[in-house]
Design a protein around this nucleic acid. Structure first.
Lengths: 218, 218
DNA sequence: CAAAGAAAATGAACATTGTTCATTTTTGCA
DNA sequence: TGCAAAAATGAACAATGTTCATTTTCTTTG
């Protein structure tokens, strides 16, 4: 192999290499899209790798070429969920009054949870995506961070505006998050339906009203 | 068969029948005890029917003689969990001041959750025990009811004592439950560890303090 | 354009787990 | 002791995640 051939080869190789990379990412995205669709439609527990492969006319093996295991798929969608929800929350920075923004954030959060319960479970309940983080030696969770930052920043502005007197920022943020998460989680997990709660159909909305009343006095 | 024989047979039969019934219930309880031990030790998802059978030196088949499927085992332990936690909560009626009792109940609740995370998941997060309820056409959840009643009764007494002005009992109870559940659920699901929360190690305790401050002003 | 080498895709096969059920073992009673 | 009912058994099946040797497709080169 002389220099000229070597260079040509290099150039061609690089060009197709980039196209290949793009094609690989497209297929990876296709798998994720199919997985997400099935998860939302029939539930994560009811969706198999075979289902996913079938739905895009690829073989089981191909899925494993692009993802090391099911947990990696779950983790990728976990990330997607945070990008989605985080994006919706960030838009609310257009609301200048931090208290109003905080209330709007709560509404967006609970709406997302109740509209996409499987995605919500994946993001905040299931162990799988967290276990995946552990297998790749990563103990951070960038997208979760970003969403919590949005809450923290807003709560901080509320404090600067004179609210939340006598409270500590970080624990109060976690408490607010816990309130919202708790309502959504119990609702999604069907714990409101059978616990003899009156007006179970509207309990989340009703409790959110109580939440707002309390917030208004903090 | 004459009358005398018939009577003797009846008497003997009834005696051994009762003993049999008792023995069956003992084995059922033994299976549950073994299952619970394994669940607590290595997690529900990591425990198989074979594990359970092995640990009490019975065969797989025997487990299925006593329980129709894994969900029935999960449901039985779900019930046990509520009996346990409900019992701990009921003891607190010895605290006469309802506000103090309410705070103590929250402490007992979160302690239970963090001490027995697998049991807590079973009681408040996992779908399996709820799915079992559906398969047997039962949409009630007696033990959950009882525990919520304890909360409702206490909150009602708080109201009668002049607290929670302007709030509605039922939604407020659910909100309080959601706060506690949210904190426990996020902690158990490792959502506090990787979300860039400051002092993640103490965040539940710290947030519980904020919760108490808010409660004191309601 | 054809051949060779690289990359991608495949699906048969395996391990695990929940579950079933025909068979075996044990038990209670005459 | 022998028989019938009850209890226990574990082999076998189905579903699912996963692996990997093989096949197919693509890219490069002469």
């Amino acid at each position: 192999m002389n220099n000229v051939h070597f260079l040509c080869a290099e150039i061609n190789y690089m060009g197709s290499k980039e196209r290949k990379t793009r094609e690989k990412e497209e297929l990876k995205a296709l798998i994720l899209k199919a997985a997400r669709k099935l998860f939302v439609e029939k539930g994560i527990g009811q969706t198999t790798i075979r289902n996913i492969a079938d739905s895009i006319d690829y073989s089981i093996g191909t899925v494993y070429v692009y993802f090391r295991d099911k947990n990696e798929i779950l983790h990728a969608l976990h990330t997607q969920g945070f990008v989605d929800l985080g994006g919706q929350l960030k838009i609310l920075f257009s609301v200048t009054d931090p208290m109003e923004r905080l209330k709007a954030m709560g509404k967006v959060y609970t709406n997302y949870a109740l509209d996409y319960p499987e995605m919500y479970d994946l993001m905040f309940t299931l162990k799988a995506p967290i276990e995946f983080l552990e297998t790749i030696q990563k103990d951070e969770w960038d997208e979760g961070k970003a969403s919590f930052d949005v809450l923290r920043t807003t709560a901080k502005q509320c404090m600067d505006a004179g609210h939340f007197k006598g409270h500590k920022l970080e624990p109060l943020c976690f408490l607010i998050w816990s309130c919202l998460h708790g309502m959504c989680s119990l609702e999604i997990g069907s714990r409101t339906q059978n616990a003899n709660i009156k007006n179970a159909e509207t309990i989340v909305a009703d409790a959110y009203d109580e939440f707002l009343k309390i917030l208004n006095n903090l």
